[in-house]
Design a protein around this nucleic acid. Structure first.
Lengths: 202, 202
DNA sequence: CCCATAACCGACCGGTCAGCCGGTCGGTAA
DNA sequence: TTACCGACCGGCTGACCGGTCGGTTATGGG
């Protein structure tokens, strides 16, 4: 029936998924390996058979998730079109992600202090490759094409990501509504600012 | 010499300061009460004489710090002038804070999941009173005065705070330099956006 | 000077949790 | 059929840490 290999793969996937859900709901230190094992319907022994430590389970879960996001956002970077169009595509893809996957991004910032040394660096690099660097590539093109004012592209891309993070969450849902309104809000703010456009009078 | 009262006050202050430094450097769970006590040059017994629990020590430290920030930023809110001038004042005050005090703001977001129930709510409320609500007051005036486009003021103020958070950190220091350049960058981005201004050609 | 009280000490306790390890079982290849 | 291997089990343990408590020292009022 199922080979041992695919049995392993299934178990590993179940453990990763359980870990994801739990780490989203509680801090790293407040999630025990027992909880993860129980949620994945294996025992602690089974969990430790596949992962060498709690820390590396977390890292492995994050790395595989971030790699998925990187691949997704890469499509927007590869797209032809204006800077604004490509950022719209990337942001729309992000906002349309299932809640759990979208929320996972903020875990990097929340838990990064938990780790040290090389593991910490791997996490940071994976995050940067997944999101800010993709935005940065588009921003760079925008500056080169004269669509954006000359400024440090990294700073601009981080700012853009920060603005996107604001429109996820309950308050934004109430005052803005669905994906497209949020998108308009973010793009409007980033490209044109919050000021009343010159030449428009109330 | 020193009265008992002032001896207590000194010890409490030393413990709070030690806690602040340690909680900045490591996660809540990774800072032990022993470490705090040692860094404050008292013993655990002494620490627990003044604070009922680790959790309430953290909360008390944060609340007293946030109240200080609230009082500081209130001056910018009370100021006369344009929306832009008042935001500049508030942001300048923030950027000129000593590193440790400035960084403390992000702890709220990092550690908020650690707490539950009423303590958690008190933390959140104190943070909101200290920073976003002050910005929101200025933004509201700006909208009313026609300086800012009509939009949800809370969303705008959160966005502004997010942009400010970007310009603290090493990269911003390298590419922007000191306080005034960072200020210009934030205000420019927030009010005018990242787009090349209309009518300006390279 | 005496005594009450508060500040402070540090050994200790109880609970928790990451990680270990000896073992079972089903699949697989010869 | 046998011999083996990897998946999985779950009880256990050693380290750690928040919090306690009985004791000691400093302070100040009477």
């Amino acid at each position: 029936m199922a080979s041992q290999d695919s049995r392993s793969a299934t178990t590993i996937a179940k453990i990763r998924a359980a870990a994801r859900t739990l780490f989203l709901a509680r801090n790293y230190a407040d999630v025990t390996t027992d909880m993860i094992a129980r949620a994945a319907a294996v025992t602690k022994g089974g969990l430790y058979h596949h992962f060498p430590s709690k820390e590396l389970l977390y890292i492995s879960m994050m790395l595989s998730d971030l790699e998925g996001k990187r691949a997704l956002f890469e499509q927007a970077v590869a797209m032809k079109g204006t800077c604004r169009d490509r950022l719209a595509r990337l942001t729309r893809d992000f906002l349309n992600l299932p809640d759990e996957e979208r929320e996972l991004i903020r875990l990097v910032r929340r838990d990064i202090n938990t780790f040290h040394g090389e593991d910490r660096n791997r996490l940071i690099r994976a995050y940067q490759r997944a999101l800010p660097e993709q935005v940065e590539a588009i921003v760079r093109d925008g500056i080169a094409a004269g669509e954006l004012a000359a400024a440090d592209p990294r700073l601009l891309s981080w700012s853009y990501v920060a603005l996107v993070e604001i429109v996820i969450g309950d308050h934004a849902a109430r005052v803005l509504g669905g994906t497209e309104s949020r998108l308009d809000h973010v793009l409007g703010l980033f490209f044109d600012g919050a000021e009343v456009p010159a030449g428009v009078m109330a």
